[in-house]
Write a protein that binds this DNA or RNA. Sequence first.
DNA 1: CTGAAAGCGCTTACAG
DNA 2: CTGAAAGCGCTTACAG
Lengths: 339, 339
Amino acid sequence: MKRPTIGDIAARAGVSKGAVSYALNNQPGVSEATRQRILTIADQIGWQPNRAAKALSGARADAVGLIIARPARVLGLEQFFMAFISGLEAELSARQVALMLQVVHDHDEEIAAYKRWWAEHRVDGVIVVDLHIDDIRVPVLEQLGLPSIIVGGPDGLGSLAGVWADDASAVSSAVDYLVALGHRRIAGVAGLPSLQHTRIRTVALQAAMKRHKLPRAQVIETDYTGEQGASATRALLSQPDRPSAIIYDNDVMAVAALGVAHEMGIDVPRDLSIVAWDDSPLSQLVRPALTALARDIPAYGAHAAAMLLAQLDGRTVEPMQDVAPRLIARASTARVRTA
Amino acid sequence: MKRPTIGDIAARAGVSKGAVSYALNNQPGVSEATRQRILTIADQIGWQPNRAAKALSGARADAVGLIIARPARVLGLEQFFMAFISGLEAELSARQVALMLQVVHDHDEEIAAYKRWWAEHRVDGVIVVDLHIDDIRVPVLEQLGLPSIIVGGPDGLGSLAGVWADDASAVSSAVDYLVALGHRRIAGVAGLPSLQHTRIRTVALQAAMKRHKLPRAQVIETDYTGEQGASATRALLSQPDRPSAIIYDNDVMAVAALGVAHEMGIDVPRDLSIVAWDDSPLSQLVRPALTALARDIPAYGAHAAAMLLAQLDGRTVEPMQDVAPRLIARASTARVRTA
DNA sequence: CTGAAAGCGCTTACAG
DNA sequence: CTGAAAGCGCTTACAG
């Protein structure tokens, strides 16, 4: 059986295709009685709009895009993206908007994909993640005029709207807590230095140390993998003046740190306190359970999607700071030993 | 500036739109010289095909769909999906085929989405994951005629093509290994009982026990979360005749088990051996590192995508068994203590 | 090898 | 409130 078209509906209802179109799209131009009759017939014969035809007449694609530029190797261990996507979906599918997903190697590929999607009318807008410092994607998106919501900010957004978490205040509260526990030598194992939020966190860490009149924190940058997290931890703990507390930019590295501490005979939390970014089932499962800086990642995704949809509806969208991450204290942090 | 169309190209080249179409699609009907001239002009003016117009003329959507039916809560901790998606993408993006992703609550929603996508010509085919026992999606997809590749099998595929890993032989080899280490009481902490591969694994476990003339394995079913993995482990280890080895259907539960063993004063691997399905960075990071049944998940995704693309090209696609998972021995398994 | 034309299924001014 | 018609940008028989 062939797919029914508005022509079929029009024939059955004894009206023109134009009238059917108005009725189906809730446009004025048909009487309420006719509209109802048309809607009933459409339902009966199982009519579904042909997207291609709609799109060719200038309608929206009813799809938004998300591109992730990370090596496959690292992707698997990021709890972030699945949680973020499930949040996006909650907003999008309620509005029958589809999500186009692509995984690429770098920003050049990502930009090429944006251009193609936009030229092909595949998407109405995109959600951009992993904001970099001096991000080359921002000017390209501005120039294309492709509606975009950046996940990150508040700096470097250009004229685009963004949504970000207040990582700085979260780091600050973590340092306050550690200092209150008596820690004075606090170090950081950071993520990719090119990411804007890595810089924000590191700057906030140093600012908090300064505020407490403590020496600058040692910070080692990594690629987020467990291996690099482990190496960084070994380096930090092999010094004579080793830190008594370390803040990790993701949970995988913090778990790796537990293994390193174990192998070096350093007890957590007695001899070393550990704080991990991004609470996760993992953080709760390991022993000792990890003190974490927790973000509501699905909510973060939902907000980004809602902002994009609002923008597509022509509403003006203000850059927005999302709720601040919370410090969840567990067994990996403790009062520092009085030597 | 307006987007260029084939009309613009035709005007510049001094040929008809038809000729341009033939040239651009590598169809016969234009001379090689003309084709080159047209291609050059298209490139110069930055022409990109309008998908909507192509689709309306009966072309493919050049998109395939993937729907994941899992609660958001569980999704975040599944390393599987991101790894699988990165494998899909490797195949798809090489062919400029887009991936439509949707997250739903149950199979009814999933089926509704398949119907809509297919009716709307949004996708050319779909990849179906998490094959259930008596899966209601299979007959629906068969009836729709929507090209589909099932991830799972070999049973319950109906007339659809599938790709699956030989979980049975993997479980069998794990049991052989444990028995060789002297274990006689082996238990299983399984995943969702409605999933086909859960049944395959459990049946294989019992078959292996029988082959070794050992008593049936105790198997506890779970929802894959760390909590249920922990409860199941507590239950198993609280018995007088507690097992000396347990096989877990995912890494998250196995890590939770390490915590439970620790809290109960049971040493791993001295008093308890643990084998985890699906090797992951997590399995390698925890202490003791987990002996794992490892699948190459990105390759699995790549194969599924390749099969779907082949099917869309009209090639006949045979159901295919992927490479068998490998047992990777690490520190969580050991020779059983001679009591 | 090339041109002119119809058609895909919608939307939307334009007349009545 | 309704109908007839043009148009979106392609593809593809059908003539030359």
